[in-house]
């Protein structure tokens, strides 16, 4: 049976290398197929103009409305979520640092919230919209996306803040600082790059999600000028145009997919660079 064991060992070794390599191959295949299909249809017109008359029959125009709409939506949602998540993360790591059991419960709830699919948030946002009496609009979308990215943001910040040495906080306390001062002058300053990373992560999630905004933002060819107007978003632009029977419109969907992928790649690289800087300046 010795030969079998040797064979098994070799076999699994090869399989392991194969599957690890397949991760890289998969990523390359996905990016390549998106770029090869979409880049030929990419033009300056695409990113600099809103849809003109007859755009959805293949005439001229671009998807500037969706690009700007997506940026507005994600930026607004990130800002709103930050107002809630930053104090929460600070509370968990300063005010409640010693309440282990409560912390367990909070982290558990946050993880549960993270696990809820975005389409459920979309449905919830929709009911919320009706209760509040607002129509499908940029504001409704911002609220929905903010709720959806909130747990992601808090958990990402929490992970960074958890690692700040207790001694650092305690020495600040022993010098007579209040909890607020420790939170904002010590904790926040120590973990700023980590917080920015969390924000970028949430921004990327927010800009790429369709299911949560499907019900709540509507869709329009104009760039929104107020919070109460409908707005187009980039992923929805990809989705809608791909469903069109006209080839020119479909091709624009592929081009829009390239733009969305590029935005996500830029965010990803920025996050990575920040993370590196953070590791260099950290005290512990």
């Amino acid at each position: 049976m010795m030969w079998w064991r040797k064979f098994e060992e070799r076999l699994f070794y090869v399989l392991m290398i194969f599957s690890t390599a397949s991760l890289v191959i998969l990523l390359l295949v996905i990016l390549l197929s998106i770029f090869l299909k979409g880049v030929p249809y990419l033009s300056w017109e695409m990113v600099s103009q809103t849809p003109k008359g007859g755009y959805y029959f293949g005439r001229e125009g671009g998807i500037l409305n969706a690009i700007v709409g997506s940026l507005y939506l994600s930026a607004g949602a990130v800002f709103l979520a930050l107002v809630f998540s930053l104090p929460l993360a600070l509370a968990m790591n300063i005010h409640m640092r010693t309440y282990k059991r409560t912390l367990h419960v909070i982290r558990f709830v946050l993880d549960l919230l993270w696990g809820i699919p975005s389409i459920v948030y979309g449905a919830f946002g929709f009911t919320l919209m009706i209760y509040l009496g607002i129509k499908a609009s940029l504001l409704a979308g911002i609220i929905t996306v903010a709720i959806f990215i909130l747990p992601i943001m808090v958990r990402a910040m929490d992970e960074v803040m958890k690692n700040v040495p207790v001694t650092l906080l305690e020495s600040a306390f022993s010098l007579g600082s209040t909890r607020t001062e420790v939170a904002f002058k010590v904790m926040l300053r120590q973990t700023l790059p980590g917080i920015i990373t969390a924000v970028l992560l949430a921004f990327g999630r927010g800009i790429g999600d369709v299911a949560s905004v499907l019900f709540t933002t509507g869709y329009t060819d104009n760039i929104p000028t107020s919070l109460f107007q409908q707005t187009a978003t980039l992923p929805l632009a990809v989705f809608f145009q791909l469903g069109s029977p006209i080839p020119e419109v479909q091709n624009r969907a592929y081009a829009a997919a390239v733009i969305l992928t590029l935005i996500i790649l830029i965010i990803s690289i920025a996050t990575r660079l920040l993370g590196r800087g953070y590791n260099k300046t950290r005290i512990n």
Partner: peptide, 24 residues
Amino acid sequence: MMQPVIDILAGIPSVIYGVWGILL
């Protein structure tokens, strides 16, 4: 070296995965 690969795979929006699915 693999961590960025995994991170980018995780960051790709689902609509892009959908487009890729339709293409390939």
